[in-house]
């Protein structure tokens, strides 16, 4: 169990929960923790690390478990296990990092690891202006491009539209993406069609986090233990990326 040291609002529905834990502070970009709120459920969360010894989760409230985590206060105890999963293969040259919603967390961590703002473009996709998160912090890590579906901030259109324009410039040697699966599928397809190396950090329902339960499977891959980060070619080979998910009973359904 770890004690919550701080809670900060990012948007009306997104909060960052800070805590101290040496293991989580050492988590690599793309790695996740299974986070337990006693009495409120457990869910996989991408780990944000930054301050020495400190780590954080950025959570959007939507289901019971994420709402429970959103509702914790400074001083509360929460359970964390992990970090689990792999990390990104950071390439040379100019890099496009595209994040949608709380999918910005691994992109921020990745940008910190690259630690060279001159070769990083951070594309932040959101539905509308108030949902844009981490803008100030991102500006210190690279060139920031914002897109909103309703045009209330930055470019009007989806993150896929913005990524298409950016990748079309031919300036990028690699692209990295985390966000809703249809957005990731769109950007992975754009990058692959141009021969740009691309990786995505995938989110799927999880129970164990360590490759036992099978809940997070995508084709013959397990997101928790083979991922969360996969190459675009591997994702395309699953035949399920961006097209099929499994419900709580394990029934394959189309997006």
């Amino acid at each position: 169990m770890v004690r919550v040291t701080g809670v900060a609002d990012e948007t009306p529905t997104v909060r960052t929960i800070r805590f101290e834990d040496p293991g989580m502070a050492a988590a690599l970009p793309g790695q996740f923790a299974m986070v337990w709120v006693p009495g409120g459920g457990e869910l996989p969360m991408s780990v944000m690390a930054g301050d020495p010894g400190g780590a954080a989760f950025t959570v959007r409230r939507h289901g019971p478990a994420s709402t429970a985590l959103y509702g914790v206060d400074r001083g509360d105890l929460i359970g964390v296990r992990g970090p689990y999963g792999n990390t990104f293969d950071v390439r040379e040259g100019r890099l496009l990092l595209a994040g949608g919603g709380t999918g910005m967390v691994p992109m921020m961590r990745l940008a910190m690891r690259v630690a060279d703002p001159s070769r990083v473009v951070i594309l932040m996709g959101a539905r509308t202006a108030p949902e844009v998160i981490f803008e100030r912090a991102a500006a210190a890590l690279g060139e920031v491009v914002i897109s909103t579906d309703d045009g209330s901030r930055g470019e009007e259109g989806t993150a896929v539209d913005a990524a298409r324009r950016l990748l079309g410039s031919g300036r990028f040697s690699a692209a990295y993406v985390c966000g809703p699966e249809p957005m990731m599928a769109g950007i992975v397809a754009e990058a692959r069609s141009r021969g740009v190396f691309v990786q995505a950090s995938i989110e799927r329902p999880m129970k164990c986090g360590v490759g036992i339960c099978g809940s997070c499977c995508m084709g013959d891959r397990l997101v928790c233990s083979d991922g969360t980060v996969f190459d675009g070619d591997r994702l395309a080979a699953t035949g399920e990326f961006g097209a099929i998910y499994r419900d709580k009973a394990g029934i394959a359904r189309r997006y």
Binding site: G41, L43, R81, K207, C208, I212, C213, A249, G250
Partner: peptide
């Protein structure tokens, strides 16, 4: 019939 199972936490070390 399909079963959704219990809510998390469903596994712990």
């Amino acid at each position: 019939e399909p079963r959704e199972g219990y809510p998390n936490p469903t596994m712990a070390e």
